[in-house]
Deep mutational scan, measured.
Amino acid sequence: LPHTAVCLVCGEAGKEDTVEEEEGKFNLMLMECSICNEIIHPGCLKIKESEGVVNDELPNCWECPKC
């Protein structure tokens, strides 16, 4: 993702460097949905019932829970 990318919900950049544990890092890193192209911190999504499908081949790419 470009350095200028920010979260659609909170308007902040990736914050994964501020935590140690892997789950915390994931919730604070910016992810781009391969379907709707929205860039968001997974932790900013209010959807709890399902998780997005992470694409292991492309960094910061997933199918968000909304899609």
Rank of each mutant, 00 (worst) to 15 (best):
E12P: 03
M31N: 01
V9A: 11
I35M: 12
L45C: 05
E12L: 12
P2T: 15
G24K: 10
V6A: 02
N37F: 06
H3L: 12
H3K: 15
E22K: 15
C10T: 06
C33Y: 02
D56A: 11
H41F: 00
P59K: 13
L58E: 12
E21L: 05
G52Q: 09
G24W: 03
K46Q: 14
C10G: 06
M31E: 02
K46R: 12
P2A: 15
C33E: 02
C33Q: 02
N60I: 07
A5K: 12
A13L: 10
C61T: 15
V54W: 09
I39L: 09
E12I: 04
E23C: 07
E21F: 02
E51P: 05
L8Q: 04
M29C: 11
M29V: 05
E51Q: 06
I39K: 11
C7R: 00
C67Y: 00
E63Q: 08
C10E: 05
V6H: 15
A5D: 01
T4H: 00
P59L: 10
L1P: 15
L1D: 13
I40T: 14
E57N: 08
E57K: 14
H41E: 00
E16C: 02
D56S: 13
E23F: 10
V53W: 09
K25N: 09
M31Y: 05
E20S: 07
P2S: 15
V53S: 12
I47F: 10
K66Y: 02
G24E: 12
E49N: 15
L8P: 04
E32C: 13
P42S: 02
E16I: 03
D17P: 08
N27C: 01
I47Q: 08
K66F: 12
V19F: 14
C61Y: 13
N55C: 07
N55F: 03
E51H: 13
V53K: 08
L28T: 15
L45R: 11
E49A: 13
V9Y: 03
E57R: 10
E49G: 12
M29D: 03
C36R: 01
A5P: 12
A13G: 15
C67T: 03
E63Y: 06
G14C: 00
V19M: 10
C64P: 01
C36W: 00
L1V: 15
I47K: 08
S50F: 12
N37I: 01
G52K: 08
P2K: 15
C67G: 00
V19T: 12
C7V: 01
I35Y: 03
L30H: 02
V54P: 10
I40M: 12
G43K: 06
M31D: 02
E51N: 15
S50L: 09
C7T: 03
I39T: 10
W62A: 03
H3G: 15
E12Q: 13
V53N: 08
C67M: 00
I47R: 07
C33G: 02
C44M: 01
I47W: 09
P65V: 03
C61R: 12
D56I: 01
D17T: 07
C33A: 00
E57T: 11
G11F: 10
L28Y: 08
N60P: 09
V9D: 05
V6L: 11
M29A: 05
E21T: 15
I47S: 11
C64H: 15
E32K: 14
C44Y: 00
V6G: 02
K48T: 14
N37W: 06
A13K: 14
P65W: 04
H41K: 06
A5N: 10
